[in-house]
Design a binder for these strands. Sequence first.
DNA 1: ACAAAAGTGTTTGTTGTACACCCATGC
DNA 2: GCATGGGTGTACAACAAACACTTTTGT
Lengths: 222, 222
Amino acid sequence: MVDVVVFGIIDDLRTLFIKRQSKEEAPDEPFPNHWALPGGHVEIHETVEQAGERELFEETNARNVFMEQFHTFSGPDRDPREPTISTAFYALVRPDTLVLEARSDAKDIGWFSMNHLPKLAFDHADILKMALERLRDKALRQPIGFELLPKKFSLGQLQSVYEKILGRALDKSNFRRDFLRMGILEELSEREEGVSHRPSQLYRFNKRTYDNLKKTGFRFEI
Amino acid sequence: MVDVVVFGIIDDLRTLFIKRQSKEEAPDEPFPNHWALPGGHVEIHETVEQAGERELFEETNARNVFMEQFHTFSGPDRDPREPTISTAFYALVRPDTLVLEARSDAKDIGWFSMNHLPKLAFDHADILKMALERLRDKALRQPIGFELLPKKFSLGQLQSVYEKILGRALDKSNFRRDFLRMGILEELSEREEGVSHRPSQLYRFNKRTYDNLKKTGFRFEI
DNA sequence: ACAAAAGTGTTTGTTGTACACCCATGC
DNA sequence: GCATGGGTGTACAACAAACACTTTTGT
């Protein structure tokens, strides 16, 4: 099996859950009416990565999304029906680019803020908890903030993303200095428009430069 | 399935492999006479962690060993017989405490230095490569060097372990300063004996202090 | 003029890095 | 006395952290 923790930013950091069917709709299914992570079985010809991507696509119609395996959960009691082994992934998406769609076997689909979670099915609360830990760890060591932003963004937006992931405030001056020093941001000739304050400079992430730097032993770190 | 990469230090950093049977002994088994990682199936009542521990015990008679899950490998072509999904672990042991034992279905068992590896079965070379990456990453952020040393050790031994894990030289003065500053080493009233140079002070790792420090947000780092 | 966020500069203390050097022991 | 690894001290550069300040926009 695979389970996918989908992170996106809508005001704050949120994750995507799917509502399971009621007792009447599916008498044999455990955790009726509970919210659960998107996921499912691995097909015979697939890798677990492919299965994760497929499941995500089925729910969100999103392709080419940042996704990383982080842990495999197992044990005889995870699912009351039978022992299961499930590899868990976290994915980073931009919610505005998705087309959510509750499939036949799901009643509903929705975003939940980390501080207002519903009751979750199975051990999905544990999976979510670990996903968040890993995401935070990752954010400090690899430039993944961009995955949650549009191509063009301001340093203010970028800082905000990192603050939401890490759950703590960052110093503006230091954040900018550090990020610009790395040289992986490309300054565009565009600026923000229509805001009632000084418009911000827009940047984009230069993946090529980052990849080159990585080869030379450079280590991203916040 | 589970696979276990067992690391130990014998002169340099080595890993434990098991020799598969020959074509004559087991005509239907793939990779005859190849060396392979210890591993096997997950029993119905087990977690993958328990399966990893069991497999390790069966080969080495070692219990209570540091072991960590690091990745799940999958895909239809990993095993020529059938698609398999295997969760991989790395373990840290002290080779002198083990009782190696080639089980019925294995011809031989042995330690191999990372720079003199034999031809490996399946995708075990990939698994080993990732295990080493993860081990190095871990070594920089968590005090695991002790797992490869006896209870009592000198700072020189400790530094040597880290150098072997990381594959690069470390500055003696800085290494000592940093480690002692953390306060997780307990100075013993013993010193090294019978060496033809100044005898070294012996220490032991104080896990309780480390756990307390961790709670206060302390982060081990080299 | 004011609010609001963008953007800059500076100061202070801490840490990383690279050395040079002294110490205790066996041979 | 010499070789060997243990153990210490220091100087410089780089960096983290905290904070105050200036700039540019819309209302």
